[in-house]
Amino acid sequence: MADTRFLIAEFIKQGLISEDKVSDALSVTKLTPDGKAWLSFLDRFLLVVGAVALVSALTFFIAYNWAEMAKWAKFALVEFFIILSILAYWDLGVRQLSAKIALLVASLLLGVLLALYGQTYQTGADPWQLFFNWALLILPWVLLAQFAVLWIVFLFLLNLSLFIYVGTFGGLFGFSFSTELNLLWLLFALNGLALLVWEYMSLSRGWLQVTWATRLLAFVSGASITVLVVGCIDSPVNNSIFSMLIWLNYLVVLYIYYLKKKPDLFMLAGGCLSASIVILTFVSQYIEAGSSLVFALFIIALGGVSSMWLKKLQQEMQS
């Protein structure tokens, strides 16, 4: 719709659509909703706002009474809503979006239940275990639902448990160069692998062809490896060359796949950003502190080159 709005505005601005026909043009292109669209909108708007008001009312009510509620009442309340969500999943038809959202709600409430359990019984478990066990427990639902959002929630929980684990123990299986380096490598490995598997599986599964999810995974893995390389340039350690090689390989794979196989300008723009950051970090090692003008010129040059390349690619992709 964003393209249509832009194009119609251009046609009107250039006088290609006469003033008396603008209203009809907006109708035909559905930029102005008709009566049926309005009815559908009002239906959904009132449903969503009404439902949000009711859910908020319930949340506020529970929050008001939480301190006075007995242990069993708190558990019963959360478990009741988990069961209700699962029943809704069955009732609404398992392939329907509303059913998948119900299962998502059940998955989130399971986390609330685990937190409540940990808070009530003070088991002494490490915080990372909460998120890791949460991810494990919802895995059957994640596999069943065939819902990209739920897979992202699952991966988010794994990332979070990794983050907390490394923060607590410094690394996996006793290896520890430095906490920050270990975390970045592990995040890069987890999200990079997830992206690889996702793109492979999406070739034969339509429900996985969700661009925002792959972009999110690419962002996290790309950000991790970029920060690793920047850190290694700034304070060189033994594995600097290794980081650089992995980063270069990552960019090459990104370029080949998202330019030749499955064109995606977002991924390529991300690659440009990563390359620019690394180059600027490298340059900053060799120019004097305070040479802000030189730095500005480098940024202008890199920005200009990225801009021209991306615009050229966009035109090629659209033709």
Binding site: L46, L47, V49, G50, A53, L54, S56, F60, Y64
Partner: peptide, 12 residues
Amino acid sequence: SLTLLAVGILLL
């Protein structure tokens, strides 16, 4: 909570 309950019921 009561205000939101009233609004939610009336909107639905």
